[in-house]
Design a protein around this nucleic acid. Structure first.
Lengths: 295, 295
DNA sequence: CGAACAATTCGTAAAAATGGAATTAATAGC
DNA sequence: GCTATTAATTCCATTTTTACGAATTGTTCG
């Protein structure tokens, strides 16, 4: 039973729905012998009988009933697809569906997606956020075109994904003006005992920060851990403590959060990866993003 | 673009997943020209481009992405079907999935399904209850083999169903012994002012009861209306009032509910129909039921 | 029992899919 | 800027699959 022949399955489906080979032949516009023959081939390739003689007609076997419920769904999907494509035949807007890891800084995501707007075509951007597992499964189901992550993702047996580095960016600590002034002098040594907000351990950046503390012989006071970077930003704005963010986002951070840079963390770089589910065929939008990141 | 060629769609699916015509050809064990040609035919029949040249490869178009999400589901279903059939290849139990209208007396349903047990094969009976609309849609989706209803159902445009009469059965009023004794004398005239429980107006029997009251010039006191006959039985057992049920179920009613017949309603017959979604192909179990009802 | 119906088998004809050889197009390397 | 390489495609002969006419088998109904 190597490969399923969908033409044969389609005949089976119509016969089952119409209630007989002759009726199906009539509906499909082919001769009854044809259907009968193809049906026999299907049964042989499946290794099970789908129909059993009943009276002078046919009745579904148990296996046939199982097959019918699948065939129903399969061919309904096929019909839906035709409708969907008929609608879309005229349209020309490019839709890019992006999954963004909760932990990834929103401003960074925004920056990375910026190149899309500079493309020739009109683009409709659809963003989802979530944890890495959800996003990966959505990627596998083609509900997402690409996922932005803070680490590369390895292909597992069932899930084949491809990670493309989008870049690595220096990281700085930021804080409200009062805090920033207080700890800027003598940075990074000044951080000893400073109130810090850090991402949780599920975030790749967390490990790098720990290493940096180790290397600089610092033991800061952690006042909060955040899964979602947007939440951390909000608390940072209230002056809860110093928080890490990309150095290049200085102007944005100041404008949106009223926080100033305290100092850059030497050797610490936040990495960003674009994870795609395709080996090489690329979404024009994803291509634009990768090109902009590389250039 | 009348009919979708699933072989072509399958090639498209593999090309999209593998990331190129050559890779797909390699995986499928056919030449690249073949795939290229079949893909072109698919695009022509659909009237939209699925791929666009990108570099020296191909990239999905917006329509291609739409198609891919359908193809994913379609071919995953196909693979699931093969697995399901492989498992079921040995099995020999017959499964009958029946939908039973809430309003239909449970004891009657039990009686009607009884013949199944006398068949040669082992049978697994799966019963669902619900309102007519739910059951009809489940029937259309092949989640049910047959529906037992108290009235025939007409085929609508989108839903083709076939109603087979299973029989009509005389109806009696029943009640706990005290009530039964009180109202049996002089039946049916004695019912004037008797506490009665009736099915709601969604039940076909309700209309027939009203007519019978009219014909016998009775104006009984309705102490309760019930959608579900099992609920009515439960209240009847508590002595809330007299309730209608099939005459032939007298022994069952007495054994299970401790209620006695008060009198049969002349001219009132509860009808039962088997509704199937198939024109003629019949489930061996359904056939047995119909045969037993006819014989 | 024979007429009508339903499915099937057989052999051949038509249609579709396939692969070889050559062509076009876009990179990557030198 | 030229050449080797990779990828997709076009053209056409060949194979495979699908389809139909004619005849066959089995079942139901009058």
């Amino acid at each position: 039973m190597r490969d399923l022949n969908y033409k044969h399955l389609h005949y089976f489906w119509v016969v089952a729905k119409e209630g007989g080979v002759n009726r199906a032949a009539n509906k499909l516009g082919v001769a009854a012998q044809t259907i009968s023959g193809q049906l026999a081939l299907l049964e042989r390739s499946l290794g099970v009988a789908l129909f059993a003689p009943a009276g002078r007609g046919l009745a579904l076997t148990e296996a046939g009933r199982t097959a019918l419920s699948y065939a129903d769904r399969i061919f309904n999907l096929g019909e839906q697809m035709l409708e969907a494509l008929e609608d879309r035949a005229g349209e020309a807007v490019l839709r890019l569906t992006v999954g963004i890891l909760d932990a990834l800084p929103k401003l960074a995501a925004h920056r990375l997606l910026q190149p899309l707007m500079g493309m020739g075509k009109p683009v409709r951007l659809v963003c989802y956020e979530g944890e890495i597992d959800e996003l990966m499964s959505d990627l596998a189901l083609h509900r997402l075109d690409v996922v932005l992550s803070d680490r590369p993702v390895a292909s597992t047996g069932s899930l084949r994904v491809f990670s493309h580095p989008l870049g690595e960016y220096p990281v700085s600590f930021y804080g409200v003006p009062a805090l920033a002034r207080q700890y800027a002098k003598g940075f990074p040594a000044s951080l000893a005992g400073a109130p810090l907000m850090l991402p949780t351990r599920t975030n790749a950046l967390r490990g790098k920060l720990e290493q940096w503390f180790e290397a600089n012989d610092l033991r800061p006071q952690v006042v909060g851990e955040f899964e979602d970077s947007a939440l951390m930003d909000t608390f940072g704005r209230q002056g809860m403590g110093l928080f890490p963010a990309l150095s290049m986002l200085g102007p944005d951070v100041e404008a949106q959060l009223g926080a100033l840079p305290v100092g850059e963390l030497e050797g610490v770089r936040e990495q960003v990866f674009a994870i795609s589910g395709e080996r090489r065929i690329r979404h024009p939008g994803v291509e634009a993003i990768l090109a902009a990141a590389a250039g």
